[in-house]
Amino acid sequence: MVNDRDSQKIVDYMKNFARKHSLFVMAYGTGCGAIEIPPTMTSRYDAERFGIRGAATPRQADVLLITGYLATKTLKRVIRVYEQMQGPKYVIGFGSCTINGGMYWDSYNTINLLDKYIPVDVYINGCMPRPEAVISGFIKLQQLIQDGKADGWKHYQDNLDDYRENQKKVIKNWNMPDFSW
């Protein structure tokens, strides 16, 4: 049955449908943006009606939120967390800090363009995005998942060397395993 093209489509549709409605978000906050997560999750905006909820460990999570500026020191931990997550996995970049450095664009200690270090599927702009914007970002991600386009994690695996090169440029002392998945 799976050899049939059309039935594969149906299987994919079912898979993506299931994935997009159970987005487990890694509870890891960087920068100012983590403060927008509690209102998004609690009763006023209630993100759980979209199937978005928290996960305690990287192994159980599907989505990694980078909620704002990322110090080079934190980047090291983020890479470690990202690689421990199991595919399919998605990254959402919050706020202008992840897009172009935001107000920390000339800081010696925060990275500017997150996409060079880990693959970002959806950016949410704003400084800081409000919960409505956050939820709209999640819905965008759900659409991408449904269309099968949220494949940053595959891109990461295929181009691991490029990413590593960028990562090692800022993380001078790479005392982590070279693969952690």
């Binding site: 450095g101 000339d106 800081s107 010696y108 990275i111 500017n112 363009l113 960028n166 800022v170 002392n173």
Partner: peptide, 28 residues
């Protein structure tokens, strides 16, 4: 606070953060 920092201490005034950031990080 810093990790694996090499070179001039960053809060000195002759340390050019903009130049450093342009060299080290990527622009959109």
């Amino acid at each position: 606070i810093l990790e694996d920092w090499e070179g001039m201490p960053p809060m000195r005034r002759d340390f050019d953060t903009k130049e450093y950031a342009e060299e080290t990080f990527f622009d959109r």
